[in-house]
């Protein structure tokens, strides 16, 4: 089966005012696979992932050039930015549930996109929570505040919330860095299961995590993409010295 590309980035440069945070990024992100971004702090991983759903638009003084195509359509072209973000969901580093009930957290997205029927919303909430593997834990407390959940539960709730608008892509920026090992394992398992329906891009500082779950890995350094390819390949036989130094921990 030939790989289809969900995203394809060409000559992407990005500036925060005068500071260039991304330098000539070229990469294809295959559909229904997990792609991991690794690299030292400040190398531009978050910046890159945020340019894929244009969250960088919110940053004053941020300028981007080059092309980012989603299913062969430019995300900077005719597409409405809200429609783009519906298709390209995002899970943040720190769980950020809304201070409202669990049900309303999940229903917010579908309501935003015009679904009013209580019946449909019930359905979506259940399906999203099931897909995020947290339905059994939460089904009896949907009316409770989302803030009463543990950090790990909150993060899975946020994943469910992202799934509620039926995106094609899930961008995850260090989704487990604030969580304990058990919650992390649950989320990793969940992410692997989600692969069949979604294209997933995940930023991680955890090499083992990248090895365990991802199909492709990109290594970044100071705004440049140093190496990108099959995860096994990158971790067993990196072609660039800097990649090797980083994954073997010999790096600042």
């Amino acid at each position: 089966m030939a790989k289809t590309n969900k995203f394809s980035l060409k000559n992407v440069d990005l500036w925060y005012n005068n500071f260039q945070a991304l330098k000539n990024i070229n990469m294809n992100i295959p559909s229904n696979e997990i792609t991991a971004f690794i690299g030292p702090s400040g190398c531009g991983k978050s910046t890159l992932i945020k340019s894929m759903n244009r969250m960088n638009d919110l940053v004053e003084g941020c300028k981007i050039t080059g092309s980012i195509m989603l299913d062969d359509e430019s995300i900077h072209g005719h597409i409405d930015v809200n429609a783009l973000r519906k298709r390209v969901g995002m899970v943040f580093q720190k769980p950020n549930p809304f201070p409202m009930s669990i049900f309303d957290n999940i229903a917010y997205g579908p309501r935003t996109h015009g679904i009013k029927s209580k019946f449909k919303l019930n359905d979506i909430v259940e399906k999203s929570l099931r897909d995020a593997a947290i339905w059994d834990e939460l089904k009896d407390r949907l009316k409770k505040s989302a803030l009463s959940l543990s950090g790990g539960q909150q993060q899975r709730l946020c994943i469910a919330r992202a799934l509620s608008v039926q995106p094609d892509v899930l961008l995850m920026d260090e989704p487990t860095s604030a969580l304990d090992p058990i919650s992390t394992a649950k989320i990793e398992e969940l992410v692997i299961n989600l692969k069949k329906d979604y294209t997933i891009v995940i930023v991680t500082h955890n090499m083992q995590q990248a090895v365990r779950i991802s199909d492709n890995t990109g290594f970044f350094l100071l705004g440049e993409m140093i190496e990108y390819g099959d995860t096994q390949q990158i971790f067993s036989a990196p072609s660039d010295k800097r990649t090797e130094d980083y994954i073997t921990g010999r790096f600042g």
Binding site: N53, L84, R85, K94, S164
Partner: peptide, 27 residues
């Protein structure tokens, strides 16, 4: 209200107005 909550709403495809009135203001 932390901007993370606002960003969470915007990342779901909510407009600035909707994120402000339906998430930030209730918060």
């Amino acid at each position: 209200i932390s901007s993370e909550i606002y960003e969470g709403a915007v990342a779901l495809g909510a407009s600035h107005e909707r994120a402000t009135f339906r998430v930030v203001l209730p918060a």
